[in-house]
Design a protein around this nucleic acid. Structure first.
Length: 431
DNA sequence: TCTGGGGTCCTAGGACCC
DNA sequence: TCTGGGGTCCTAGGACCC
């Protein structure tokens, strides 16, 4: 029987905010989405106040004021960097591992020369906390799905102290599944949860006991795999090699709706530049591109419309100039006056390794690659957007709001925290 | 007033082929 | 009158994840 471990950082974004600002410990914190729109992360204290995931900030203004909730814009530079630190500790502890998301990592604990797995997990928790400041919980199970459930229980059970092993305690499984709402099972989202509830299946245990044929018919092969995983039959392997992306996307909701074509074009241009940087960074080229714009679905008084179109490249490319030109061309094709646009995006599709390009007679890859490499190096060294195609204004109206942004403590020299020494050191000394 | 962004996989149906 | 069987590829849409 395999043993999967799932390490999950507790309230990750909120915990990151606390690492360099310990005065936030014990206080309710919410972290907002881009544009400071919705709540995307909450500290335990904020969850206890009844603030739910995804709620728009303006709907919880009263709670925020009444309980003095700390509000932060999302600081992905900080979260990404702390994530890498946590993951490197996990990688050193369990060589066979899969970084599953910014705050989660699956571990293969089978071949570990360890007798007391629970003790080993507690030690790993302590080490991660001490070295990074980030608290984690660890769940163990015979499948990924079961390790997810174990992890969730490890977070909520006071007795568990952050670690629960369902793999070596099969006698706990029925109770664990019985108290897990079916919607909390990995792979069961809102739609399926509602459908299952309607049919009297409310717990993970009831889902585990459902008939295969029925599950296959209602939820397809994907749902059936989840049910098998609940029974301890692994259907999802550990993926130790991150697989290359097949698509990539850059999209934004604008600060406010925009009717002016030039401004929308400027936004599209910078999205196209950003996606181009992304795929060059991963050593890929794209075979086709899609551009889309939509009006504000929440503004019921305004006429609604969404438009999108795509184009295919004769030779796959990652050249900013080619991608920006293509994006502008696509926008021209579907642009319509008379609407106020609220969101736009550029998607690159059919990504493939840059080395696989079949050159044609009509493109000069060597010159293109050299220029793009120079651009990327300059931006890497002096900051994103230092140089570009000179078409997109820095202070454009569509740029996102980030009014509560914490410093980039670990990734920007001028933001490095300063530590003031205590009395016994001459005043003014800083480290 | 104010509502995120970036991905994956699967399936059904249509076009087309022999 | 009576109109097969088997396959591929592509796309749009729906479900899910963090």
């Amino acid at each position: 029987m395999p043993t999967f471990g799932l390490v999950d950082c507790n309230n990750f974004y909120a915990s990151c905010e606390r690492v360099f600002q310990p005065s936030l410990i014990g206080r309710p914190i919410v972290v907002l989405s881009n544009n400071d729109g919705c709540v995307v992360a909450r500290s335990q204290e904020a969850k206890a106040l009844g603030i739910v995931m995804g709620v728009p900030l303006f709907k919880i203004r009263d709670i925020v004021e009444l309980h003095d909730v700390v509000v932060r814009s999302s600081n992905y530079a900080l979260y990404g960097d702390l994530s890498e630190r946590v993951m490197s500790i996990l990688a050193a502890s369990a060589p066979q591992h899969e970084v599953y998301s910014i705050d989660e990592c699956f571990l293969d604990l089978d071949r570990l020369p360890v007798k007391d797995l629970t003790g080993w997990c507690h030690a790993l928790r302590r080490r991660t906390k001490r070295w990074t400041g980030i608290p984690v919980s660890i769940g163990l199970g015979a499948t990924k799905t079961l390790s997810k459930i174990a992890n969730k229980l490890a977070k909520t059970s006071a007795k568990a102290d952050g670690v629960i092993d369902l793999a070596n305690h099969p006698e706990w499984i029925v109770a664990a599944l019985g108290k897990t709402p079916v919607g909390d099972v990995w792979g069961i989202g809102r739609r399926w949860s509602a459908m299952l509830n309607e049919r009297g299946i409310t717990s993970a245990l009831e889902l585990r006991n459902a008939q295969d044929g029925w599950v296959r018919q209602r939820m397809g092969i994907v749902g059936l795999r989840t049910v098998h995983e609940l029974r301890g039959i692994p259907c999802h392997e550990l993926e130790t090699q991150p697989s290359p992306k097949k698509t990539t996307c850059c999209s934004r909701t604008f600060g406010h709706a925009i009717a002016d074509k030039d401004q929308v074009r400027n936004a599209i241009i910078s999205f196209a530049e950003r996606t181009a940087e992304k795929i060059r960074n991963s050593g890929q080229v794209c075979g086709s591109m899609q551009v889309f714009i939509t009006t504000d679905p929440f503004d019921t008084s305004a006429p609604q419309h969404s438009a999108s179109a795509s184009t295919t490249f004769m030779t796959p490319t990652a050249d900013s100039r080619a991608l920006v030109a293509a994006a502008i061309g696509i926008l021209e094709r579907f642009w319509r006056d008379g609407f106020s646009w609220r969101k736009a995006g550029v998607m690159l599709l059919d990504l493939s390794p840059a080395g696989d390009i079949q050159p044609t007679l009509f493109t000069n890859h060597v010159a293109s690659n050299g220029l793009m490499q120079a651009v990327d190096r300059i931006n890497d060294r002096f900051g994103r957007g230092t140089i570009g195609l000179g078409l997109s204004a820095k202070d454009a109206e569509w740029r996102m709001r980030q009014e509560q942004l914490s410093p980039h403590y670990t990734t920007r020299w001028q933001d490095i925290p300063r530590v003031r020494m205590s009395e016994q050191v001459p005043s003014g000394a800083e480290a």
